[in-house]
Design a protein around this nucleic acid. Sequence first.
DNA 1: CTGAAAGCGCTTACAG
DNA 2: CTGAAAGCGCTTACAG
Lengths: 338, 338
Amino acid sequence: MPTLAEVAQKAGVSIATVSKVLSNTPYFTEETRRKVMSAVEELGYLPNLAARALSSGKTHLIGVIFPYVYEGIFTDPLVQYILEGVEAECNERGYNIVLSTPRLSPDGPEENYRRLLQSSYLDGIVALDNVPLSSVLSPSLRKNTPAVAIGYGDHPYFVRSDDLQGSTSLMEHVVSLGHRHIGILTVDESLHYSIQNRHLGLQTTAETAGLNYAQFPKFDRGDFSIASGMQGAAEVLNQENVTALVCINDRMALGAIQQVQKMGFRVPDDITVVGYDDILSAQLFSPALTTIDQRAPELGHQAAQMLFALLNNEIPDSVVIPTRLCIRESSAPPKSSR
Amino acid sequence: MPTLAEVAQKAGVSIATVSKVLSNTPYFTEETRRKVMSAVEELGYLPNLAARALSSGKTHLIGVIFPYVYEGIFTDPLVQYILEGVEAECNERGYNIVLSTPRLSPDGPEENYRRLLQSSYLDGIVALDNVPLSSVLSPSLRKNTPAVAIGYGDHPYFVRSDDLQGSTSLMEHVVSLGHRHIGILTVDESLHYSIQNRHLGLQTTAETAGLNYAQFPKFDRGDFSIASGMQGAAEVLNQENVTALVCINDRMALGAIQQVQKMGFRVPDDITVVGYDDILSAQLFSPALTTIDQRAPELGHQAAQMLFALLNNEIPDSVVIPTRLCIRESSAPPKSSR
DNA sequence: CTGAAAGCGCTTACAG
DNA sequence: CTGAAAGCGCTTACAG
C-alpha cells in the first residue's frame, strides 16, 4: 500500500502538504492541489485509518451495540430495523459500523466489549439499552465517547418507543370492542424496561374502563417465544371465561392463536388475540394479527442522527416515538355465548 | 485513559516490559508479571487499539460484508443467520465485527467501502458474494487481506449452500407426488448466482423424470417479494392446468398461496405450493410451507472458521453445505380433476 | 529476563 | 501557502 510519503515524493511536495490537501484545509494553491491529487490517483492511495486514528483520535467508526440477552438476537425484528436505520445514516456520512453484541452478566458486559469501548476505535456509540441487568453504556462514560441510548437506560441522550401509549391504544381497542374478561400473556417484567411500561399502559387503560385488571387471568412466565404463547393460552383459557388475549409480543400472540385453534375455538369469532411489534408474520398469518407497530426503523434513524449531532458538538433533544395501532383480522367483538 | 507509559512508571519497569507481559511473550519473571498486572489493575489500563494496530498491523477486527442489493437487507433471513454464525465465532475468539453493506454499481462498490477495505482496519473479511454485478472482494485482493466468500464469487476460499442439491430434492419431492404440470415462480437469474443453480437443479430433475421443463409455465419477473409471488401465481394459474407451483423463495411462495386461495383454490388439495429458504413464516403459515432449509447459520460458522484458519496461516478447505427438505402441509398429490 | 530506540503512517501546531 | 518536526501509543528486533 502506498503511503503519504510516497504520494508526497511523487507530487514533489511535503507530506504535510499532502495531508492538508487531503483533509481539505484551506491553505494551498490550486496548482499544488492538482499535483497532489494526480499523485494520489496514480498510486491509488487510500489513507491508513489506524494511523489517522492514532494521530487525530478520529476513526469514522460507530459502535452499534445490542446486548446479547437471548439466542438468535439477529432474528429479532427490533434489532434488524434499528440496524437498518442506523446503517442508512452512517452510510450517508461515510462512517462504518462496528457491530457488538456483548454477553451480559451481573458483573457487567464481557471483557472483549469493554476493551472495544475503551480502545479509541469508536468515535461514537448507539446502544440498545433496555435490560435492567446491567447497562452496556456505563463503562463508556469513563472514556467520554459520545453515546445515544435506545431505550430506558438512564442516559442523557436517548430515543425510545412510546410503550405506554402503544399498550394504551392496544388495550383501548380491545376494551372498545366490548371485551370484559381479558387474559394477559406476558413475560417477567424484570427482564425488560419496555415491558414494565407496556404493563402500566394495559393496567391503567383497563382500570379507566372500570375493569379489575388485577383479577385478569395472567400468564407471565413467557419468554417471547411462540411456544410460550401456546403454553400461556392453554393455561389462561382453561381456567376462565376469557374472550380476549392480549399478548406482550407478536410471537407469543401467534402461538396463542395456534393454541386457541387447537382447542377448537375460532379467532376472532370466539376469542380475540392481539400482539405487539408488527413483525412480518403478523401480516401473513391467517387470521392477520391486530398489533402495535412501534416503527423501529425510526428508532435507529433518530438515534444515529442524534449521535452525529453530538459529534458535531450540538446538543440533541431526546425523543419518544409514538406507535401505530394496526387493526387486522384477529380482533372482533366478543360473542355473548362465552 | 492510562497509557502503557503510565503503567510502566507505576510498575517500575520499562514500557517494553509491560508490552511483553501483556502480550504473553515468554520472557519475564513471575515477580515482574505481578508488578505489571497490579499496575494495570489499579489504573484500569486497556490498550489503545489504534496504536496497537498501527505498530503491529493487527486490529482484531473482522469485516463482514453484505452487498446492499435490495432494500431491507437486514430483514433477509439469510443475512441474519450468516451474521449470527459469524458473530458467534468472532466473539469466542475476542474479535469484533465491522459490518459493511456497500451499495454496488457497475463501477464496483462505493468509495467508503473501498476505503475501509484498504484502511488496514481489517484483519480479515467474510463477504456474501453472490451477485454477478460486481464482486465486493476483488478490491481487497490488492491489499492481501485474508478473505472468505460466501457464495459463488470466484475466490480461492469459499463456503456455499448446495443450491443444486436443494433444488433437486425440492423438484423430486413435487414430481414424486405425481405432479406433471408444474409452474415455476422465480426471479431473473442474472441477479443471483444461487438462482442459476437452483434453476439448473429444477430443470435437470424435471427432465430426468421425463417432463418437458422448457414448456413449464414460468413467471420470472419476481423480486423475491410476497407481492411478486401473488402476481406470479395469478399469471401462471390463469393460463394453464397447473397443479403445483415451485417458487424460488419462501416469500414468493407465501404470496402464491394467498393468491391461490383468493382465486378459490385450496392448498394443497387443489394446488401444491413449495418454497425455498425455510423462513420463520414458512412454519407459522397455514398451511405450513414445504420448503428447503439451507442451514444458513452453518454458512456463517464455517466461513468464520475458515477465516480464522487463514489468519492462523493454515489453508482451509472450501465447503459446500447440503440442504434439508422440510415437508409440511402445502404439498400433496394432484387431484385428478384438474 | 529487561530496556533503549526505532518505527508504524498519519495530523497538527509552529515557524518561515 | 509550505515544510520540518514532534507526537499519537503501541510493538519489535536488538543489545545487554
